[in-house]
Design a protein around this nucleic acid. Structure first.
Length: 142
DNA sequence: GTTGAGCGTT
């Protein structure tokens, strides 16, 4: 009886020791950072300004603001008009005081029919006064 | 009197 116990102790002791070390050595990586393969969208494109297309020709900035003012503070509404004819080009921009209001208005109004026309809303891009417009600056000649 | 995807001026 004592012999098998002794044998098991003699053989298990190093084994348990080894296992304990190897486990503790292999244990740490439960934190495997899963590499997000679409590395692009950490944040959904969001800014206070919305690009609103699909506007009826008869939609003016006043009615457009009235349609969006219930989602937040509208800081700017602009509809692009044709230089010559003076009529609406069918799209414009609506800017809110913050990104949340803009996203809320977009989710609520995108696809909604206004004056018989389905609205196409997305976040504005490009020309933003004071925005991140990168202008390559050439060295000034002297 | 028209048209219908799109990203703009001061």
């Amino acid at each position: 009886m004592a012999l098998p116990e002794l044998l098991s102790r003699l053989r298990l002791a190093p084994l348990r020791h080894h296992l304990g070390r190897s486990l503790s050595a292999v244990a740490p990586p439960p934190d495997e950072p899963p590499p997000p393969y679409p590395p692009a969208p950490p944040q959904p494109p969001s800014n206070p300004k919305l690009f609103v297309a699909g506007l009826s020709w008869s939609t003016d900035e006043r009615s457009l603001m009235d349609a969006f003012s219930s989602f937040g503070t509208v800081t700017e509404v602009r509809i692009m008009y044709d230089k010559n004819s003076g009529r609406s080009r069918g799209f414009g921009f609506v800017q809110f005081s913050n990104d949340y209001e803009a996203k809320c208005a977009k989710d609520a109004m995108d696809g909604k029919v206004m004056l018989g026309r389905p609205l196409r809303i997305s976040f504005a891009l490009g020309k933003v006064r004071g925005g991140p417009v990168i202008v390559p600056r050439l060295p000034t000649l002297k």
